[in-house]
């Protein structure tokens, strides 16, 4: 029997780490941005924790692992930029990365229902809500800086 669930768990695990790294990279690239103070690091820690909570399930389902299909994973973030437009684009990238995580939680929740894995569902509920909060924060910040960045900034 082969189940692709493990591939999706692996994808999400990897995406959470990528999001954590990207949050830290964006923070480093924009040291003078007040709104990133503290928050990026905090969200990165959450992402790391979420990835850790996934690990037992990756192991649980990897017994059924099939060969990883091609192009299961594609990179969404390739380094932070500089400047005000750079910040907006970086946040945009983070948003896409977080969206990747968010939809993965949703799909894994569906699969967890399918195999009746209550434990996994619990993790998805908790961590998925955190990812939803990440999206909300990114959206709030991007909406605030968009008019100035897109119309006024040099």
């Amino acid at each position: 029997m082969s189940m692709h669930l493990a591939h999706y768990l692996g994808l999400l695990h990897r995406s959470q780490h990528e999001l954590a790294d990207a949050l830290r990279a964006v923070r480093r690239a924009h040291p003078d941005e007040p709104d990133l103070t503290g928050v990026c690091e905090r969200l990165a820690v959450q992402c790391g924790n979420n990835a850790r909570r996934l690990e037992p399930f990756v192991r649980r389902y990897s017994a059924h692992l099939s060969e990883e299909p091609e192009r299961m994973h594609s990179a969404l973030f390739s380094g932070a930029r500089r400047g005000s437009l750079g910040l907006l684009r970086d946040l945009h990238d983070l948003y896409l990365l977080a969206t990747q995580c968010e939809i993965s939680w949703t799909l894994i929740a569906q699969a967890a229902e399918g195999v009746g894995d209550e434990e996994l569902l619990d993790v998805v509920r908790h961590c998925g809500a955190e990812t939803a909060a990440h999206l909300l924060w990114l959206r709030t910040l991007m909406r605030q800086i968009a008019p100035q960045t897109l119309i006024v900034a040099p």
Binding site: D32, E33, P34, D35, G83, S84, R143, Q144, I145, P147, Q148, T149, V152, A153, P154
Partner: peptide
């Protein structure tokens, strides 16, 4: 399109040259 820009960001925009 609010909310208003907070003080730290106003100075940030000034530093970037958009204000």
């Amino acid at each position: 399109w609010g909310p208003a820009t907070h003080a730290m960001r106003i100075f940030r925009y000034a530093e970037e040259g958009s204000i």
